[in-house]
Structures are given as structure tokens and as C-alpha cells.
Amino acid sequence: MAQENFLVILPYAIAFLLFTATLVSYRVIFGPTLADRAVALNTATTKAVVIIAMLSLLYDAPYLLDVSIVLLMVNAVGGLIIAKYMEVRA
């Protein structure tokens, strides 16, 4: 296992990042324009990638890293497609 004090502090770090993602979801729900929603969704997905990488250390399960790589790629393609949609609709 990894170092003990690091593993003790890790669940609190995950809880704090989830609280931050909750703050961001205000901008997802009440954002004035579509661009605000896209930005906030991108931010929340990056936080989810980091949280999954932390969970792989906490559960001692290296296969979760593959999940976070795939989620990151989906995030990139999704952001580009939303940007393309906004540009075409204008």
C-alpha cells in the first residue's frame, strides 16, 4: 500500500473535489448561454477524471486508470462537437 497518511487524507480530498463539482453544476443548470454550460461541463468532467484517478489509488485497482483515460478522450471529443454545433448554428 501507499503511505498511510496520504491514504488517510485522500477521502477528504475526494469529498472536497465533489463539493467543488457541485459548485460548478450551478453554472451547468442556470448558465445564461450554451457556451457557459459547455465550459462548466468540461470543468466537471476534468474533476471526474481526477477523482477516478484518486479512487484507483484508494482501492489499489490500476484498471481504473484506463477508465479515466477513456473519459478524458470522450471529454475532448464532446467539447469539440459542442463547439462545432454552436459555430454551425450561428
Binding site: L34, A35, V49, L72, G79, A83, E87
Partner: peptide, 20 residues
């Protein structure tokens, strides 16, 4: 990959927001 993808997506969204 985060260091490559994140500025790229923000650039795309900024340009699309200006165009829209």
C-alpha cells in the same frame, strides 16, 4: 493529455462563442 486537451477545447469553445 490533460495539458494538451484542455487548452484546445477552451480555444474551440471561445471561438464558437464569439461566432455565435
Amino acid at each position: 493529455m490533460i495539458a494538451m486537451i484542455n487548452p484546445m477545447v477552451s480555444h474551440a469553445i471561445a471561438r464558437a462563442a464569439y461566432k455565435s
